[in-house]
Design a protein around this nucleic acid. Structure first.
Length: 500
RNA sequence: GAUUCGGUAGCUCAGCUGGUAGAGCACCUGACUUUUAAUCAGGUGGUCGUGGGUUCGAACCCCACCCGAAUCACCA
């Protein structure tokens, strides 16, 4: 590559070909010249952020002796004849570089001149501050590590098209630095939850995703097939039943952070697969779970924001414990003006609300339908909704003071269900009766009713200690903490329909 | 599933009442030794989501479909 014939693109050859073809030609030229455009490794001494941290205070008059090696993606290039500026971005940050023909091999200048935006390059150079005051690297050496064949999105607006951003998240991450921040934060949140639980002696476990049956929630499953065993299998819809079997087995504090799969609609707060945290603690009840939830979330918010106040979509949410509490009885009175102990009144209310209650609908279902219609979306501040009707909670223990209720709570924030917990039902006789009740509901058309799990009943027959259980929707927590309106913005690869 | 909005160059977007398809960025050529959305001059680049229809003529009007977004419904 010592002469211009092999390096400069001939105008006549390129006027009618696209950018990818131009770059493919550069790739060919490099390979023919024995310079691979796909190197094997590079020994970095610094990330861009390290240079900002170390040399952030130098002035235009300072001379730095240290030479640094960095590598990353070329994001911008500004040629000035015999000088050139550009920006390189790595996983930490980006930094400007500068090169001019003085005191440098012509080869190096030519190499840099031939880089295309999007190429992954290395730079060896010395930090300095430009006249205009920007911390930069003066290039001594530079190399192409990976050739990029496709041009990047527009440098100023980035990639805006939501469909492209979700379908080609890699490009979104390159072009939109805020997106990377969101996902770094997601990682930090999960890590901080994990450490919180480990510090509290919870043991992290893994249970199967593929199961012979499914349960622990009311949802339709995804079904798949094992060829060799000639049997249908289900992707889990929750983590609950295997984890409670571990409590039977003698572990006292377990948790799992795992993907669950629900064969239901897609919306700004629903994705067919999402991440659930479930934890179970022996010798605890739902009051203990409430305190744990308050501590976990308030500490998380404090760690992320420095206060208990979190601004979400323009509203300040206050996570200072204790969170407000509402029983279903009081909520239905306050928000729907109906007595939840009066079946006729509930039925009348549901009819007024055009919920179209069917003949013989259970009181519990009426209560939940009215709650969904009148209450949930109005609960903005962190609120524990507690003491649900027993009929819609087949895995929760009856309330100690009222056997038409269960000891259960859901945590609602900004109208979204964030957590769900019970004093776990551990009476196998009651559990079996509840499952049979669910089977009846299933037969009368409720395809989300819980299915019978005889092995789980069997496990309970050996005795499960009194247990508190808690489930938290990780994606929704991340939505709150990153002020994301849609669950798609906190999933790297949200589910998208196939393009034809 | 319903309603509304959107799909035009690689990206960000204009395109009026139906009359030859536009700009900026990127790219190519040239100029330029401290710029930073660099600048200046000149260029390349289009199956206007898909398929029908109306019309002398459709990016534009009509119908159907595909994909996406928002709101609702569904989803404890």
């Amino acid at each position: 590559m010592s002469d211009n014939e092999t390096t400069h693109i001939n105008e006549e050859e390129t006027t009618h070909i696209n950018e990818e073809e131009i770059r493919l030609q550069k790739r060919e030229t490099l390979i023919k010249a024995g310079k691979s455009p796909y190197k094997y490794a590079f020994n970095k001494t610094h990330h861009c952020q390290d240079i900002h941290d170390t040399y952030g205070t130098i002035t235009h008059d300072d001379t730095i002796e240290e030479t640094v090696n960095i590598a990353g993606r070329l994001m911008a290039k500004r040629g000035h004849g015999k000088a050139m500026f550009g920006n390189i971005q790595d996983g930490s940050n980006s930094i400007q570089f500068y090169i001019n023909v003085n005191g440098i091999d012509a080869d190096v200048f030519e190499t840099v001149a031939l880089f295309d935006i999007g190429d992954i390059i290395s730079i060896t150079g010395t930090p300095f501050r430009t006249k205009r005051g920007e911390l930069s690297l003066r290039i001594k050496q530079s190399d192409l590590l990976t050739k990029a064949l496709l041009p990047l999105p527009e440098k100023y607006h980035g990639l805006q098209d939501k469909e492209l951003r979700y379908r080609m998240r890699y490009l979104d991450l390159i072009a939109n630095p805020d997106v990377r921040k969101t996902f770094k934060k997601r990682s930090a949140i999960v890590s901080s939850i994990r450490h919180f639980l480990e510090k509290d002696d919870f043991m992290e476990v893994e249970t199967p995703v593929l199961n012979n049956t499914y349960g622990g929630a009311s949802a339709r499953p995804f079904t798949t097939h094992h060829n060799e065993l000639k049997q249908d299998l289900f992707l889990r819809i929750s983590l609950e039943l295997p984890l409670k079997r571990l409590i039977v087995g003698g572990f006292e504090k377990v948790f799992e952070i795992g993907r669950v799969f629900r064969n239901e609609g897609v919306s700004y707060k629903h994705n067919p697969e999402y991440t659930l945290l479930e934890l179970y603690q022996a010798y605890a009840d739902y009051e203990d779970m409430m305190s744990l939830t308050e501590t976990l979330l308030s500490e998380l918010v404090k760690k992320q924001t420095g206060t208990y106040i979190l601004n979400y979509q323009g509203q300040d949410l206050n996570f200072e414990p204790p969170f407000q509490r509402y029983t279903f009885e009081k909520a239905l009175k306050d928000f729907a003006d109906v007595d939840m102990n009066n079946y006729e009144a509930l039925f009348k209310k549901a009819t007024e609300l055009k919920l179209d209650p069917s003949e013989g609908i259970s009181k519990g279902t009426l209560i939940m339908d009215i709650y969904d219609a009148c209450v949930e979306s109005k609960l903005i501040q962190p609120t524990f909704m507690m003491d649900h009707p027993w009929e819609t909670s087949p895995l929760a223990k009856k309330h100690r003071d009222n056997d038409t209720l269960v000891e259960r709570f859901e945590l609602i924030i900004s109208g979204m269900e964030i957590a769900n917990a019970f004093s776990e039902l551990n009476d196998p006789v009651d559990q079996e009766a509840r499952f049979k009740d669910q089977e009846k509901a299933r037969k009368s058309g409720d395809d989300e009713a819980h299915v019978m799990d005889t092995d789980y009943i069997n496990a309970l027959k050996y005795g499960m200690a009194p247990t508190g259980g808690l489930g938290i929707g990780i994606d929704r927590i991340v939505m709150l903490l990153t002020d994301s309106h849609s669950i798609r913005d906190v999933l790297f690869f949200p589910h998208m329909k196939d393009k034809p």
